[in-house]
Design a protein around this nucleic acid. Sequence first.
DNA 1: ATGGTTGCAACGCAA
Length: 256
Amino acid sequence: MYKIATWNVNSLRVRLPRVLAWLDENKPDVLALQETKITDADFPLEAIQQAGYQAVFSGQKTYNGVAILSRNKASDITTDLLEFEDPQRRVLAAVIDNIRILDLYIPNGESVGSEKYQYKLNWLSKLDHFLKHELKKHPKIIVLGDFNIAPADIDVHDPKRWHERIMCSTPEREAFKAMLNIGFHDAFRELHPAEKTFSWWDYRTYGFSQNLGLRIDHILASDALISHCKKAYVDTALRKEERPSDHAPVVVELKL
DNA sequence: ATGGTTGCAACGCAA
């Protein structure tokens, strides 16, 4: 099985030992990272190469930052959405093993109605154009990352509490549906139609211990790939350990 | 739980 995973690590500098341990234990073919919070000059390439992986990355100081680790070589690297010059490093696309991988760190949006929320909605509209463009060039696409969108109430521990709040608002959910409408499938939800499973738990409410989570990290497979997805799951093992990321890895296994 | 914790970097900002 070909294993592809996504993980918002919330600082690669802090989480590097965890990432290396996770690679060693799970041996994914591709691991997409978000919130690396590290410049390209400081990227820990040697440690990752010693673990048997190659890496491409697009980082910045302090905030954001994305990277793709893979067994095999990445080509056709893209770091920006179409016609959208953004200093925030949130996009990384590459072809690996003849599959187009799109690693996304979609803006958080802070709160509905805020300036950052407008930035998020604008970003999502740029993403829509980008995805349509990418699909024309590459039928076999995996879009994965931290979407900062819980697609439906089943993806939320307490839908009433989160009603029309950030990550759950109707415009955000509509943007997510639009991605599915142009030819993508939410791999976890396709394989587990009724499972209430989360990928992120707020540090501030000690959310993990009570499972007060949201499913906001996703792996979308294009029409050409969804039938190859045989397994999808969230790996919560590391979230239970000392000093975890607030997100857990999400994994799909494909029979190619 | 309308508060709280974490990471960065050095104070408040972002999540």
